[in-house]
Design a protein around this nucleic acid. Structure first.
Lengths: 234, 234
DNA sequence: TGATCGTCAACTGTCAACAGTATACGATTT
DNA sequence: AAATCGTATACTGTTGACAGTTGACGATCA
């Protein structure tokens, strides 16, 4: 009893399950295209299927999984074209956040952002860099003062995490990214809405370009592979 | 049996329930702040609570309801400030749609849009006008070619429907709205991305301004009412 | 009379069993 | 041997029952 009071669930089983499934997807334990078996997961978590179902439907709304009637839920597969669409929307929203934030930021906010960038600059590998980068972006959109905007931006970003596992998103050159971050902070500090909007939208668009370049390279690589194999046949 | 095959559910009970609950909210049969009783609704629809729960969780993701743990789900109450936030995001997204659409529209698309505007111009009352207007906006965002963008825009618009019932959104002057529509089509026809973005974002921002003016008037009215009453007391 | 505490009813959260459906596999036919 | 059909199976969709929580009401006490 005391145990239960202490270990009291702050949240429902459904939300815990949703969080865990989301983690499994982001971490790659569940791969794109995989089917999620309700009963199996229920057994694994030691709960019944109800909360698992609820969790999956919730993840569907954030586009992490696809639900097919009478067939089950599948970890979403996301094409380069779809990712590009998301990038466009995300870039535009990030731009709006910049425009709004430029008119609102305080000296204290700027100092905080600068500290975050310094920390990022000292990050040696991508694994240390990435979470810092996510926090930095979150902070930026929150500074817009528009919570709906911030939520949407974060949701789109999370969706793109699905792509990280393809190795297409990660490894973006940290140096150029950091330069862009500094320019963003400058624009915000100056209260220059136009510049902030341009810099922030451009920052995400640069990410999109990196993705497309890599995807193109990957296509090229696959094409080369096909040619190589067809030659081996003859 | 034959009956069942004929009346075969194209969709799950949950999605049917979600659609019906959404309709009830938009129609005002469920008012903002109302609690949605799962058992009552289940009985009303003649199904069990499971699908109702699923439906409510789904509506939560589109922000039509708020779920409070162990208390139930409530039809969302939306403040003027929140509505203004949504308008800002929506306006910006509509602008992006315009920019993208300007580079893609065909002659046929333009003709279709023109026909829609003509139909709107001939609409006499707001009840005939409103659904046409919704379709027109949908068509516009779809012409962007970015399905994610279109979905987000529609979702935000639906959220603002919650506000219609307050009488703050409806009754926007149809004439000026139609003038703006025509300017949008012109920009698209000319393939002028900049103008299309500006006109389309501006169109929604005008809607926001109308809302704020009305909300201000309503505030003023309430203030006057308070003064009147306090005078009666003395 | 007012405040506090315990009880209660109504509801949500969870579960396990049942019903229905889509796929896979093997039997049957040509 | 190939194609088709039927059957089996493993899953999802749905249900009704149970457990746990919350807010309200009334009893108790200062």
């Amino acid at each position: 009893m005391v145990r239960e009071l202490q270990a009291r669930r702050a949240t429902s089983l459904a939300s815990l399950a949703a969080a865990e499934i989301e983690r499994m997807i982001i971490a790659g334990e569940l791969q794109a295209g995989d089917r999620i078996n309700e009963s199996t997961l229920a057994q694994l978590f030691g709960i019944s299927r109800g909360p698992i179902r609820e969790a999956c439907r919730s993840l569907e709304k954030s586009s992490l999984v696809r639900v097919v009637a009478n067939r089950g839920v599948f970890v979403r597969e996301i094409s380069v074209a779809q990712a590009a669409e998301i990038y466009d929307v995300r870039a535009h929203l990030f731009g709006l956040a910049g425009r709004l934030a430029a008119a609102r930021v305080t000296r204290r906010d700027i100092d905080e952002l600068l500290a975050m960038v310094r920390e990022m600059e000292s990050a040696r590998d991508i694994d240390a860099y990435y979470p810092l980068n996510v926090s930095f972006h979150s902070r930026l959109v929150e500074l817009s003062g528009n919570s709906r905007l911030a939520d949407l931006y974060k949701s789109l970003s999370k969706e793109l995490h699905l792509f990280r596992r393809k190795g297409l998103v990660q490894g973006e050159s940290m140096a150029s990214s950091n330069r862009e971050h500094s320019r963003i902070i400058e624009a915000l500090r100056d209260g220059n809405s136009q510049a902030a909007e341009r810099e922030m939208a451009g920052h995400i668009e640069a990410g999109k370009e990196r993705l497309l370049r890599r995807a193109g390279d990957a296509d090229l690589e696959r094409a080369r592979e096909r040619i190589r194999r067809s030659r081996e046949k003859t």
